[in-house]
Every structure is written in structure tokens, then in C-alpha cells.
Design a protein around this nucleic acid. Structure first.
Lengths: 183, 183
DNA sequence: TCGCGCATGTAAGTTGTTACATGATTTA
DNA sequence: TAAATCATGTAACAACTTACATGCGCGA
């Protein structure tokens, strides 16, 4: 159900095409909500059909037309209602942690490479988050309230990514001390 | 796909019934992988059908019989193979963070209550993780390798829950400074 | 000319959720 | 005697993934 409200919230920020929304999910919203373009297009079609959105056909000189979606009043009402109900915390499902549970079957060398990869990913994520922070939220205290909350959503990504890097250090040390039998 | 391997890994630890596996997912594996009893039973049936598991019917004096599942060799082979392939990081999908993106529609008072709730949840989670740590992993350095990796999976939960509490502090301060228009 | 970014979809399959169902024992 | 725990499932549905499909413009 929540994808629908993620879309409504994104369109409340500003009207956008399916393509643009997909990109937002991959960039600014990456630490908030994830959705593929297939999901986005399908849900937009449904929302439009239900009268929660309006479309505007945007002509482009060379490229084919694109459809810009706007939040309509019924959509805004739905969103408001959803915002007032508390939602369950997302369940954890991390295949890497599953692997640690089968610890004695893991290969030592392979694990260290995985850890190095994950560290690289976390570091570039952190770089990206910080670049967004610098671009959009330079002086948080001077920002209007809702931008400050968006900043806090970003802070969530930063804090957890930093925590993850800490954890990777711990993990690497443990593995290096010879946590596994093989390798 | 990963639920299947979570089950194989859990059964590699020790044979168990569907019910017991469901409980593990809700307790010791809560910070690792989540699955409902319906999913567990369905997947166990499939795995059995495919010859990845063996069943043992355990008679009980009073209660109806229960089925204890054991990892069979083909299942162990599958697991080994899966462990050697790196898996994509789980996508983020957090409805609470979505709400922060619609910041200017949020109610100030409601938000503060939500934050208080989340803090309570995180704190009791942390208590639970720490009780498990004390029970199973008192002197990590003396443990066999694979238990040390299980401990690290738990450490992941601890570190991220602590990070979350930090973040909640930040968020609360921001909201109290008057982040939203209403309330 | 090959691939990439823009731009939009359909279809099939897998995974996860919610609701329903049963029946015994234990605890308040 | 009512609720909770043990113990196992089925069925319908919603959500998400993967594969397939089309077509234009731009840069190497």
C-alpha cells in the first residue's frame, strides 16, 4: 500500500513524469523508498484511474510527448489521512546477515572481499548523501520546517550508513582473527 | 528467493519444526530475516517436495504429532552455492521516512507521539538484543568462529538500533524547534 | 553504429500479506 | 471460561521482480 503514498508525497513536492519519479526513487529517495519504473508506471495508472491525480501532456519538439502527473485533491486527501495513521516498522530482510548465520560454511577470503565491496558501496553512498546535504540543506536552521524534515530523512541515511561502516570494521577484524574454518 | 536460503541456514544450525522456525524468525533472527508462519510452511513444503529436506514425525503424548525438518544433502549443496554468490543489498522501504518527505502536511503533536513510540520500541529491542548477547555471546573471543559471526549479526542489530536512537534525538529536537506549520 | 539516456509501457512469475480454518493444552 | 500458546495448514490477494518491447536523439 505504501508505494501509492510515496508517489502521492513525491507529487505533493512537485508534479513529475513517471520517469522523473523513478529517478527520484533512485537518487534523493534512495534511503527512503525504493521502486522500479514498472511499479511506478503501474501505480500511476491506477491512481489516475481512481481520480487521485491529473495528467498534463507535455509536448516536446523532438522527443515523443511525456505525461506530467499532478496531485489532485482526492489524492491529497488520501495522503493526509495516511499521514495520520502510524505505519508498522519495515521488516528486516538482509541476505548478507543470513549468510553470517551459516557462518561455518562461509569462505574466509570470499567474506573479506564482500566486506571490502560493501565498504566501498557505503562510502560512495555517504559521499552522495553529503553532496545532497551540501546542495540542498546547507544551513538547516534557516530552512522552512518541511525542508528541515526532509533533511532529517537524509540524516537517517547518513547516520545508518556511518553505523554500517563501523560495523564493517568490527566484522572485518573478527574475520581476520580467523572466524571461519576454511579459506 | 532468499527466504528459502534463510530456512536452509536455520536448519543447518539445527533441525526444527515450522513452528520453531517461525519463532526463530521472530526472535533471534528478527534483525536478520523476517517471515510469517504461512511463508515458512509453504516454503518448507516446497523444499521437502524438491528433496532438499527430510522430515521426521515426532510423536507427542498429548498433543498432535509435529514434523521436524532436517537439512538433506541437496539442500546443503544449494545453500553452499548460494553463500558463494554475492547478493544485492536489501532495498530501503520505510513509510515513516516517506512521511517526513511530506513534511509540511504533518501534524506536530502527532509526530512527537510517533517519535516517543519509536523510541520505546527501539529501547526494548536494544534490551532484547543485549539479553541475547549476554546469554549466548558472553566472551566472544573464546567462541568458535561461526558463533562469532552470529554474534556479529547481532552486533549489526545493536549498532543500527543505537544509531536509530541517536537519529530520533536529532529528529525530536528539530520538531520541537517548530519544524511543522500545524499543531 | 553501438550504446546510453529519455520515455513509456505489458506480461509472467515470485514473494509476501491477510483472512480463514482447525484442534489440543495451558494459564489466568 | 476465556485467552494464550502450541502446531499446522489453505486460499485469495497485493506487492515486487524479471524479462520483454518500442522508439527517438545524442555522443564516442
Amino acid at each position: 500500500m505504501a508505494l501509492r503514498y510515496a508517489l502521492l508525497a513525491a507529487l505533493h513536492e512537485s508534479p513529475a513524469t513517471g520517469y522523473e519519479l523513478t529517478q527520484r526513487f533512485r537518487s534523493r529517495l534512495a534511503n527512503v523508498w525504493n521502486a522500479s519504473h514498472q511499479q511506478v508506471y503501474r501505480e500511476l495508472a491506477k491512481l489516475l484511474d481512481e481520480g487521485k491525480l491529473l495528467v498534463e501532456s507535455v509536448q516536446q519538439s523532438d522527443k515523443p510527448d511525456k505525461k506530467r502527473y499532478h496531485l489532485a485533491l482526492p489524492g491529497e486527501k488520501d495522503l493526509k489521512q495516511w499521514l495520520d495513521q502510524s505505519q508498522p516498522r519495515p521488516p528486516v530482510r538482509d541476505p548478507f546477515l543470513v549468510k553470517l548465520f551459516a557462518g561455518d560454511m562461509l569462505n574466509y577470503k570470499w567474506l573479506l572481499e564482500e566486506i571490502a565491496d560493501m565498504r566501498r558501496v557505503s562510502e560512495s553512498q555517504l559521499d552522495y548523501y553529503r553532496s545532497v546535504e551540501n546542495e540542498y540543506f546547507e544551513q538547516p536552521d534557516t530552512l522552512p520546517g518541511h525542508f528541515r524534515l526532509q533533511h532529517l530523512a537524509l540524516r537517517n541515511g547518513i547516520i545508518h550508513t556511518e553505523a554500517n561502516l563501523e560495523w564493517l570494521d568490527e566484522l572485518e577484524k573478527t574475520v581476520q582473527k580467523g572466524a571461519t574454518s576454511k579459506g
